[in-house]
Write a protein that binds this DNA or RNA. Sequence first.
DNA 1: GTACGACATGAAGTTCACTCGAAGTCAAGT
DNA 2: ACTTGACTTCGAGTGAACTTCATGTCGTAC
Lengths: 159, 159
Amino acid sequence: MVDSTLSIGEVAERTGVAPSALRYYESEGLLASTRTSGGQRRYPRAALRRIAFVRVAQRVGLSLDEIRHALASLPASRTPTKQDWGRLSALWRSRLDDQIAVLERLRDELTSCIGCGCLSLRSCTLYNPGDRAAALGSGPRYLVADERPPVRPRRARPG
Amino acid sequence: MVDSTLSIGEVAERTGVAPSALRYYESEGLLASTRTSGGQRRYPRAALRRIAFVRVAQRVGLSLDEIRHALASLPASRTPTKQDWGRLSALWRSRLDDQIAVLERLRDELTSCIGCGCLSLRSCTLYNPGDRAAALGSGPRYLVADERPPVRPRRARPG
DNA sequence: GTACGACATGAAGTTCACTCGAAGTCAAGT
DNA sequence: ACTTGACTTCGAGTGAACTTCATGTCGTAC
């Protein structure tokens, strides 16, 4: 390969992202490519950074939809600056902070429940009707018990 | 209702878990019910505790499959003891600890990257080929990289 | 010029944890 | 007895983020 562009296979190998995923990202507007005269995709090196951005954002817990918005918030006309990146990563950090806080709270509740024979006691902190924060993507509802919780409409969380 | 068993609607109301979910749990072997002569489900009160167990386990991040195994590890013949519960919740806690650790590490990496113009530097800690721990369900692969220096390249075509 | 692997597309399949809808049955109150 | 609402089953649908498959083309090494 004489030029500096990369085929989809090369990009896949370098990023660890499967070709099918790269095509999917393109179909979702997260990634662009040019084409050879024969119709095959060619990527500039900057695509690697863009893909890295996507994967890191996914690790933070963003959906591809959110990532598309984040990418759109970066100026298209220039290489993202430190400020651009700082703004986004600060946002992500607070999101991670929230997730960590939720998990820590759950862990502490669990810890305080070890040995108490919980899950049947009204006083158990795991019985927490008011919790609206998602711990792990699965929307928590109120949890137990032998007493009637407040009646509340529920909405299933998406997949 | 003269006896102490509960209909699916009553269980749903008391646990906050939709009837359709309860039927689904049953189809997945997580929950049992007896039937009336007319074929309707009736649940003993212990079902409430079992359902509570399931929901808490879900919050911890277990799949229904894992929860089924956890339930199977409880003795069927007797009410779970404090030891039973303690053993499982200790297991869960260490799982939460792991998840929290992963998120904290990611957050710290992110924090240390704010302002560095990352995602293009080989030295960036977000570039971590060896990472096998799933942060948020999506199996991470190694992430970057464009070994090209900071300045110059322009982004791939905006979507 | 031909062989062969990498690439193309579009549709369909996968996983998880459900929900929804249709069509029919049961249970309880009057 | 009748009405009403809760219940039954089964199959299909949801959504995210892909993968797999079938069928066909590209590009390059020999």
